[in-house]
Every structure is written in structure tokens, then in C-alpha cells.
Computed example of a mutant assay.
Amino acid sequence: MKHRLIGSAVALAATVGALAVAAPAQAATPAVQITKVYYNSPGSDTGSNSSLNAEYVRLTNRRSTAINLKYWTLRDRSNHVYKFSGDFRLVAGASVYIHTGRGTNSSTHRYWGSGAYIWNNSGDAAYLRNSAGTAIDSCSWGSSGSYTSC
């Protein structure tokens, strides 16, 4: 009887262990994440370049190596598209801000060059895709507030 109980306990432990291994893994963190969207620039929406540039999306590299964002895209629900052209390496752990208006691109700030607001204050979504068009990350928000942390 003692051997039968030990055998049953071992069988039960093996079954529980198999179930733990077979459980679905949590989704992996994307290499690059949308970490903040400031969709309602401060003050009145005047349409000035400084007001447009106060509207931005922050992307963060979550990996320990640089990632080339060449031909990656950032878009909204209305299909306004920002495309990283040429080599743009986002270093490990770094963030880049994509501003709606015009400006001079740098390693930490990129400019859409739009003369109109992109992100809707009443609710919208940002979608990040790699150069193959594969969805990497997204972030959505409703109609309250001025920004969202994703």
C-alpha cells in the first residue's frame, strides 16, 4: 500500500508538472514599445508648429542592443503614417520622441512634418509596425486627459 501511495503521488506530481509546462507563456515584451502618447498638446490648439510639436509619441527600446527602425511605421486609426526613412538606430534602453510638427531630426527627437494635428483628443490609437509590416505594439486612449502612458 505504501508503494502504491508513493507511486500515486509521483504520478500526480508529474501530471501537475506537465500542466505547468503546457500552460501558455505570457506574451513577450516587444523590442520597441509605445510608452507614452501626448495627444492633447497643452493650451489652445492653435495649429502653430510649437503646439503641433507638443503632440508626440514616445517609443522605447526594451532590448540590450540597438534596433534599426529603418522603414518602421507609426500610424493612427485614420491611417496617418510616419515612416522612419534611412538608417535610424535606437540604442539599447533609449527613447525617441516623434513630434507631429516640423523640426530637425536627432537621435532622440523625430518630426512628422505635419501641418495638422494627428492624434485625436476624443480617442485614438497608435500602431507601431516593423519594416515587414508586422504589428509590434499599439496603444489606445479615450476622451479624457491629455496623454496616456502605455
Rank of each mutant, 00 (worst) to 15 (best):
F84M: 08
S95K: 06
Y97R: 07
A94W: 00
W112D: 11
N105A: 15
S95M: 04
G86A: 08
S114R: 09
T104C: 03
H99L: 04
A94G: 01
V91H: 01
V96M: 03
F88I: 02
S106Y: 02
F88P: 05
G113C: 02
V91M: 03
S114Q: 11
Y111I: 13
G115R: 13
S85Y: 03
I118E: 14
W119I: 08
Y111E: 12
F88S: 06
L90P: 02
W119V: 00
S114P: 05
G115D: 14
S85W: 02
F88N: 05
D87T: 14
H99G: 07
R89A: 12
N105C: 06
G86C: 10
Y97I: 01
R110Q: 15
S107K: 04
F84Q: 00
T108I: 03
R102Q: 14
T100V: 15
G86K: 10
R102H: 14
A92L: 11
Y117G: 10
S107H: 05
S106L: 12
W119P: 11
G103A: 01
G86D: 04
Y117F: 15
N105E: 04
S107A: 13
G101I: 00
R102F: 13
V96Q: 04
G113D: 09
S114N: 09
N105R: 12
H99I: 04
V96D: 09
R110P: 07
G86L: 06
H109F: 00
G115C: 05
R110M: 05
V96I: 12
W112N: 14
S95L: 09
S114L: 05
T108D: 13
A94P: 04
R110N: 09
I118G: 10
S106R: 04
W112A: 06
R89M: 13
I98A: 10
Y97H: 11
R102C: 07
L90Y: 01
W119F: 14
G101M: 09
I118K: 14
I118P: 12
T108R: 08
F84V: 13
G113A: 07
R102K: 15
G115E: 05
V96T: 09
S107N: 11
G103S: 04
G93S: 12
Y117K: 13
R110G: 02
